[in-house]
């Protein structure tokens, strides 16, 4: 059993080995493929100076703020569209039209309007989180089965009670799925927006500066950091939603 588990490590180790080998093949190789020792020392340096943490923190706070705005706005807008027909008629065409433009495609336009500071980035991240929240909230309302609504009617629950006790809990799984998606979008967009608007702190800005200086080791540290943080955040989010949805059968 132990041997089996080790097989997964073979390929990554081979890749790392190949990387290290490439880094020793003259100047051209060392430019793109930096030796592993250099990556490690860059990591130590970035951690020691606090540079990594400052930039990570900046990206994380923007993600969380944008996610918060997106969740609140998205649930509100999605519920409005789901519960009120005329509102849906007015909002839906605009929403679905705007949704088609890739998130990062908005950046030039928003940069022209809001400049390339924090507010522009925050707006983009919030929008990125808003879309999946609206869609999932809207969809989950449709998924409340007619039979549940009938059962609520037979028990003579008032409209408000139906909303609070039936519609809302029934919508929670959909909303939780939306939050998970929104988190992933917000994180990617937060880092992505820093690549384009690279003023201020953030992992993306750090990478862009490293690219300009051809410092591959810093880029590698950043990429690792981005992947790991994204993974940890979605893991936390999954744990939270599983706790919230413990009434569901485990699939």
């Amino acid at each position: 059993m132990k041997v089996r588990d080790m097989r997964g490590l073979v390929l990554p180790l081979l890749m790392v080995g190949a990387w290290e080998y490439a880094s020793r093949q003259g100047a051209a190789g060392a430019y793109a493929f930096v030796p592993l020792a250099q990556v490690a020392s860059a990591m130590a340096e970035l951690l020691g100076s606090g540079e990594l943490l400052i930039n990570l923190w900046a990206s994380l706070t923007r993600t969380c703020t944008g996610l918060g705005v997106g969740i609140v706005g998205g649930i509100g807008l999605g519920a409005l569209m789901a519960l009120c027909g005329p509102a849906n008629r007015l909002i839906a065409p605009l929403f679905h039209a705007l949704r088609q433009v890739p998130m990062l495609g908005w950046i030039p336009l928003i940069a022209l309007w809001l400049g390339n500071g924090e507010s522009a980035k925050l707006l983009i991240v919030s929008l990125a989180a808003l879309y999946p929240m609206v869609l999932n909230t809207f969809e989950s309302r449709r998924q409340v089965e007619g039979q549940h609504r009938e059962a609520a009617q037979v028990l003579m629950l008032s409209r408000w009670q139906q909303l609070r006790l039936i519609l809302l809990p029934a919508a929670v799984p959909g909303i939780a799925a939306g939050v998970l998606q929104a988190l992933a979008f917000a994180w990617v967009t937060s880092v992505g927006s820093e690549l384009f608007l690279s003023s201020g702190a953030g992992l993306g800005s750090l990478m862009m500066n490293a690219e300009a200086a051809a410092r591959m080791e810093i880029i590698i540290v950043c990429v690792l950091c981005i992947g790991l943080s994204g993974y940890l955040m979605s893991w936390l989010c999954t744990l939270l939603s599983r706790r919230l949805l413990r009434w569901r059968p485990n699939r």
């Binding site: 089996r4 097989r7 997964g8 490590l9 073979v10 390929l11 990554p12 890749m15 430019y31 793109a32 990062l104 994180w187 990617v188 880092v191 992505g192 690549l195 992992l203 993306g204 990478m207 862009m208 490293a210 690219e211 051809a214 591959m216 880029i219 590698i220 950043c222 990429v223 981005i226 992947g227 994204g230 993974y231």
Partner: peptide, 26 residues
């Protein structure tokens, strides 16, 4: 699966956008 799945699922986590600077250098 035993050889590739762990690497595959790890690399899957890294957003493409974040790889742009690295790919530019490479």
């Amino acid at each position: 699966e035993a050889y590739c799945a762990p690497l595959f699922h790890t690399l899957r986590q890294i957003p493409s956008i974040a790889l742009i600077p690295m790919f530019v250098l490479l």
